[in-house]
Each structure stands twice: as C-alpha cells, then as structure tokens.
Design a protein around this nucleic acid. Structure first.
Lengths: 245, 245
DNA sequence: CCGTATTTGTCCGTATGTATG
DNA sequence: ACATACATACGGACAAATACG
C-alpha cells in the first residue's frame, strides 16, 4: 500500500543508531537526527514528514517523534499545520533577507563586544586566519577556503563569551539553510573579499567599538546583497523560462 | 498521597477553558496557557512542572502536554532535565545581561531599518507618543506610563515590517522575565529619561541610519545598566544579611 | 461531488528505569 | 538498601479531519 515511498524513506537512514544516541533522551536524539537531515538537505524545504513512516524508520513510537518535531518547529526548522502534518520549513527570499539583517545586527554586536575582550594572543590568532585565507584565495582553493572562513566566523562569535549570542547566531544561520535558494546563500558567503575581514580585525585592534560593530555589521550586509542579487537573477531566469519558452 | 500540593496547583487554573482554546490544536492551546502562566509569574523560575498533575488540571492527556513543554523548552522558557522533569527556566544575572545586549543589537537594527520607512505620518504618531509620555512622567503617573512606553516600543518594532525581527525581539523580552530578579528588569525599564526617546525619534527624522541605530542601541543598553546596578545592590543586600546578621 | 483510505490528534494502560528521601 | 514517585517510552485504540480516486 504505502510501499511506493517507504522504500525510499528507509534508505535515507537506518535504524540501530539508537545505541549511540542513548546519551540523551530518545526525543533529544531524534531531534538531533532530524535537525541533521534538515540542515544537510536530505529532507528538503516543503517536504512533508510522515509520522508513522518516520517513527517506523527510527524504530521508535510516535510519542517521542512528535515531541521532537514540536521542538524543531519552535526553533523554526519545521512547520506544523493542524490536521495536515509537519513540513520542513521553507523560507522565502523576503524572510531570508530579514534573517540576514538580524544576523548582521548580532554579528555587529559580536564586534562591539569583542573590543573589550581583545588580547594580543587573540589578534595573533585572527591574523593567522587572515593569512591562511589570503593564501587559499590566491590559490583559488575554494574547497579549503569555505571551512576556514566558517571557522574564522565561529571563532569570533565564540570569543565574545556570550553563550546567548552564540545560540542566537547559530539559530539564524540554521534557518538560512531553509531557503529554497540555498545555493545562493552559500554563493553569497563565498565571494568574500578579504579586505572586509582585515577591516574587522583592524577595528578590533584599534579598540574602536563603533567602528568594529559597523565593520562586522557591513560584512554580513554585503553577503546579504550578494544573495539578493543572485536571487533576483534567479527570478529573472524563471520568468524567461515561463515567458520565452 | 499527592494531595498536599495538588490543591495549590488546582487553584491556579481551572479546566474547562478548552472551548475557547479549541481554535488551534490542544498542544498549541496548552502551550499558550503555559506561556501565559510562566510570563505572568504564576509559575515561578525554578519551579517544577509535574506532568500528571498538570495534565489532570488541564483535563488533557500527557501527550499534548509533553509536546507543549518541548516546544516551550526550545523557546527557552522551560528546562527539560532527563528523567527528572521540566522546570521553569531560571536565568542568571549574567545571562540576563547577555540578553540585554542581544536586545540592544536587534532594537538598534530596528532603528537602522526604520530610517528607510519613515513617513510624516509615522513621525506624527511617534511625536504623539512622546508628548503623552512626557505628560505622564510629569504627573508621576507611572501606572499609565509603563504600558504607553511598552506600546511605543512595540510600535517601533512592528513598523520595521520585519516579522522575523518582531519574533526575535519578543523572544528575548520574554526570556528576560525569567530572571529571578524580575522586579529589577521592570525597574530598569521604568526610569527612562524621555531625552532618550526624543533622540531616537529625532535621529529617525534626520534620516541618519548610523545615528538611529546607535540611539536605539544605547537606549536598551542604558536600561541594561540600570538593571545591572539594581542587581548588584541586591547582591550586596544578600551578602550583608548573611554576614552581618 | 461523494465515498473511501490515509493520517493526524488524542486518549489510555502499562512496563521500565531513574531519582529521591 | 528500599520504597515511592515520577519520567520515559511503548502500543493500541478511535474519532475527526484530510487527501484521493
């Protein structure tokens, strides 16, 4: 009856990883698993999550599964529609732009806060990051550039010492992955000029809070603009496809 | 057996409001109810939520109740401790200060965004708020000042047109209520000089993004500082009580 | 537009393990 | 060490809403 799709579903993940996940509650483990599936795109925006099939696949009952989905819904990764089910959240370009702004504001706050935490050692570490990224960019080694860039940002965020800030920031980044135009998000993050990074670190070294906040803020705003342009180009393509052909 | 506490619990809320809440799912209705109980302080920070008693009190089964609590936990209003239960989240002064910073950053973003949305009509409305608050402050009519002040801020936040920003901001404000020193939070918000409000509106009228962002940001930072001072005074008091007496 | 199959929402009973005094 | 209370998780059940032919 329901075999047409259940096969496909069963291939995505095998049951039995329970042992590993037993560290926390079942609900928590399933939540992490689902989160992973969503963020990696194995579950795509708009896709529906069938309660029974999913619980069978994880080898659990519907209770913990439902609890996990409500939690993910509250975190903005799933949509729960009454009597219809839960869907992977799909965020519009408009919403993505809003999230970029929030991210800019929080990243800007990170810059402002970091001015009070700056040490010579930290500056050395950051300059090290800059040099590595400069080198990778010159070699056009994008595969290594991307994770280094990520680590650089995570390092900055974490160095604020504010757990709340870290949480909030990552929540926003996660939600950005739910944009249908996910590729565009990555593209926006890649084409970063190292001049922006240098200005960020320099403003920290200068101990100028406002300058740092603005440098950090603008850095995110620029990737927002790149995303925006890519999204517009994308929309134009679709339009041509519909009109022309 | 469990009657010692169940009486008290049963008095807090009666079952039967189901009809009103039937608009959404039971889970959603219970979540709203619990949220209300938490934010009004009827359920206090650190307090434990007994699954069975609560479900009896609401006249529902434990399933929806658990789903509601997981959702509230994801939103930072409850803590779920494995095999021990769920507790109303209790945030430390340190965490409250972190949240103030985030709120400042997002409120600052609101100011920055509003510069692009300013209309004569909006400025008229805002000036109207300012005049009313001036009058109330002069009369020392704090009971009316407080909600007007709240409405003023909500109006600003909403006028950005960014639903994501509104959500994020309110999430932070909600969490701030979970500080044991909740009274201090309110005290911090009350003693607002209207000069700050005027500078905010003026910077919007001037169309200066950076100035607006900074005015909005500092406005929150100042109430953070007031909260901080009150918290320190509070801590000193406790210390004296322990040492002296 | 109608009838059927599917799926969700909710309840209940129960077994098991864990924390607490 | 023991007993109690409680949270976790399971499975079955059924009504109601929804999706589908």
């Amino acid at each position: 009856m329901a075999n047409q799709t259940s096969d496909k579903v069963n291939t995505v993940l095998q049951a039995g990883d329970l042992e590993l996940l037993r560290t926390s509650s079942l609900t928590g483990a399933v939540e992490k698993e689902l989160e992973h599936l969503i963020l990696t795109g194995e579950l795509k925006p708009g896709e529906r999550l069938n309660e029974i099939r999913l619980s069978n696949r994880f080898g659990i009952s519907r209770g913990p599964l439902r609890e996990a989905t409500r939690s993910l819904a509250a975190r903005g990764l799933l949509d729960v529609v009454r009597n219809r089910g839960v869907f992977v959240r799909s965020i519009s370009v408009k919403e993505a732009l809003e999230i970029y702004d929030l991210r800019a504001a929080i990243f800007g706050l990170a810059g402002r806060l970091l001015v009070d935490h700056v040490t010579d050692e930290m500056l050395a570490t950051l300059n090290d990051y800059l040099q590595r990224m400069d080198a990778l960019a010159e070699q056009r080694n994008f595969d290594d550039y991307y994770p280094t860039n990520l680590a650089f940002h995570d390092h900055l965020i974490g160095a604020t010492g504010s757990a709340s800030l870290v949480n909030e920031y990552h929540g926003l980044v996660d939600r950005l992955h739910l944009c249908r135009a996910k590729g565009l998000v990555q593209a926006g993050g890649l084409a970063v000029s190292n001049r922006e990074h240098r200005e960020m670190v320099d403003s920290l070294a200068a101990g100028d809070k406002l300058r740092a906040q603005e440098a950090f803020f603008r850095h995110v705003e620029r990737s927002k603009r790149r995303f925006e342009m890519a999204a517009e180009a994308d929309a134009r393509e679709d339009e041509e496809k519909r009109d022309g052909r």
